[in-house]
Amino acid sequence: MGNCLGNRRDSDSLLMCGDDEDGQFALGQDQPLRQEQEAWLSEVALTEGSLQGKRDTFWETAPVYEGRREIWDALRAACEATDEGDYELAQAILQGASISLPRGRLTECYDELGNRYVIPKYCISKPTNMAAANHNDDDIEEIVDSTTKLLQGPPTPTSPSRKASGSGEIRRRLPQDTGLTMVVKVRLSTLSKDTKVTVLETARVKDLKRQLATDQSVDPRKLTMLYSGRVLNNGTLLKDLEIPKGFVIQAVVM
């Protein structure tokens, strides 16, 4: 059972709480993310595939019932960074989204409006009793794939019109620059409010970084872009993200 006690210092009242797992912590204050993996056991041994399935199900359904979608996306990105051991990125994501951790753990979080977010341990780290993958299924898939290729026969020759002049390489179709622009709402981790960035409709993530760097005087090489809980690759087309109105891209300065 937890316990709480009052502590008055310099005319400010601070409520100190404690439990068997985390010791004593300051209720209502943001604690830095603990740079450690919490060991836990799964009731049923999970494979990599089944664990990822449970995680995907949680992240897809949790925003439907409570909380804000953009906060859930930020928490997902922070959990994935933590699972990979990148605590610096996880902390930067939390700060950029104004998410507080009263215990220093991702299992219980709060946004700036006071909404509470509870995340299961399996979304943060792997259990200590992970099951080995079943290689038999992989072997069967490989045999089926090889058989399919044999039945299909050799690949159809590429049309000359699709080949580059003087070489056998196929030309990559680049998006046509129509000159039209789009406005992207970005939440920069060093700002207290969102900012709007105007880019071409054919712009990629790297172009957004450059424009944001110009507008806000930051180094584009230190920017990490996140949307819907995923780190965005520089080559991703912004229009392919199909960002709904009112949603934001998080820009974390590392």
Rank of each mutant, 00 (worst) to 15 (best):
M225Q: 10
S228Y: 06
V199P: 00
L94C: 08
M254W: 10
A62E: 01
L75P: 05
L14D: 00
Q24S: 01
L113A: 00
Q29Y: 06
E38S: 03
L208G: 07
R105W: 00
M182L: 09
D12L: 02
L101K: 04
P244R: 11
L212P: 13
L94Y: 03
I124P: 05
E38K: 09
V231D: 04
T202Q: 07
K222S: 04
D10V: 01
I170Q: 10
V253Q: 08
G229H: 02
A62C: 05
G114L: 04
L113G: 01
V44M: 15
D138W: 12
A92W: 00
G67W: 00
D30Q: 02
D86T: 04
G53A: 13
I143P: 10
I243P: 03
C123M: 06
L232G: 11
D73W: 14
R173A: 07
C17H: 01
L27I: 02
F25K: 05
E21M: 02
I71P: 01
E84G: 13
T61R: 08
Q91A: 15
Q52T: 15
R210A: 15
L46D: 09
R221I: 11
G53L: 06
L223K: 10
T198F: 01
G23M: 07
R221H: 05
L180P: 06
K206Y: 09
C4P: 01
D138C: 08
T214V: 10
S100L: 05
Y117Q: 03
S98V: 15
E201D: 03
V118C: 15
G2E: 14
D219R: 11
A62K: 07
R172F: 04
S217P: 04
T195N: 09
C123V: 10
G229Q: 12
P120L: 05
F58V: 07
T47N: 07
R162P: 00
K239N: 09
D83N: 13
C109R: 09
T61W: 07
C79L: 13
D145E: 15
E60Q: 14
V252H: 06
P102R: 11
R68H: 03
K121H: 03
A39G: 14
T236V: 14
G114S: 11
E84S: 14
S146I: 10
S217L: 12
S165Q: 05
T195S: 10
L15P: 03
C79S: 07
M254C: 06
D219E: 08
D73Y: 09
L232T: 07
T156C: 05
L94E: 01
V44Y: 08
T47V: 13
S42D: 13
R171D: 00
R103V: 00
E201S: 05
Y117W: 11
D215W: 07
K54I: 00
Q24F: 09
Y122M: 11
E21R: 06
D20Y: 10
L208W: 06
A26R: 11
D194R: 12
P127S: 08
L15K: 12
N134R: 02
E242N: 10
V186E: 03
Q37V: 08
T158K: 01
L188D: 09
Q211M: 14
L27A: 15
A97R: 04
G23C: 01
E43M: 15
T47A: 14
R173W: 07
V144L: 15
